[in-house]
Nucleic acid binder design. Sequence first.
DNA 1: TACCACATTCACGTTCACGTCAATGTTGAC
DNA 2: GTCAACATTGACGTGAACGTGAATGTGGTA
Lengths: 166, 166
Amino acid sequence: MSSHQPVSIDDQTTEPRTDDGAGYQRIEQVAARTGLTKRTLRYYEEIGLLPPPTRTEGGYRLYSEADVQHLVRIKRLKDLLGFSLAEIREMANAEEEREHVREAWRRETDPHAQLEWLDRTEALTRRQLRLVEEKLTGLQEMQTNLTARLTRLDALRTELRKKLEG
Amino acid sequence: MSSHQPVSIDDQTTEPRTDDGAGYQRIEQVAARTGLTKRTLRYYEEIGLLPPPTRTEGGYRLYSEADVQHLVRIKRLKDLLGFSLAEIREMANAEEEREHVREAWRRETDPHAQLEWLDRTEALTRRQLRLVEEKLTGLQEMQTNLTARLTRLDALRTELRKKLEG
DNA sequence: TACCACATTCACGTTCACGTCAATGTTGAC
DNA sequence: GTCAACATTGACGTGAACGTGAATGTGGTA
């Protein structure tokens, strides 16, 4: 599970509870920092959008900084780009699979399997990129429309001013 | 079912049309052309997102080409930009108010009221523009990330190829 | 005139993305 | 050890955006 984390929860010494020194945060903190609600955090975990964070002895969730970053990215995908949580999960899972496999990659013996994985990953990435670019062109068009409208409005305004003063 | 017309409203030949003589189309046609469902069309009308189209004697909805264009724009706002129908209604209402007032504009006697209207409209437009630009930067960042990923994948691929052949 | 595909209006059902209690347990300061 | 503050897990509720019948009416073609 927790492979290359710089912090281990299994420190040999008698652990003082609540290692805030380790950078772990409780749910309320994370909610405040991400702008999400506590319910939403649990929900995201429930639907497999966020990997289950570590817990205290008593079962309190302890979020790492990486978790928080993950959540920020999720929020951006949702708010800025209007992706559904299902879509985000697709992308995030792909991303995470990629991260996860990175180490295994070197140890992977079969180059055939490696190529296959490459193909799948690239195809997925291309699909995502296409989606993003579609949205981009749509947004750019909207942008030009809106700015054009602004200049028209400004023209009307100066015209009006002239009428008022002249 | 059998709709293969090249969608020309200027076609002046005596070709029989599936629409009413005046270019009006029934709901099924419009659904097909917009990619929305018939239910969705009625729903949009129901919540005031689409102005009620004209009807036949018997009560069948007859959509104009303008209605179709309106629907296409709605769909773009929803799919591409992830706006809620409420948000879209805001924008569309503003837009329509603008169009509607255009004629009244010239007849508008009070230049003070005109300025006021200008202010409101401009403020709204700026808000929309800001939203669009926020989304734009987010998407652009995503785009660079994805393309970078693609190049990395490609590098890995060639490396693998070398290993396989060499 | 008869037919049938397509239309209409209720009205209830569904999925997503959470909100909101309620009952209970945990933490940490005192 | 006590206690308030924060946490947990259900479980049900909610609003948005439609889906899905059911019962009924329309309209162009044969």
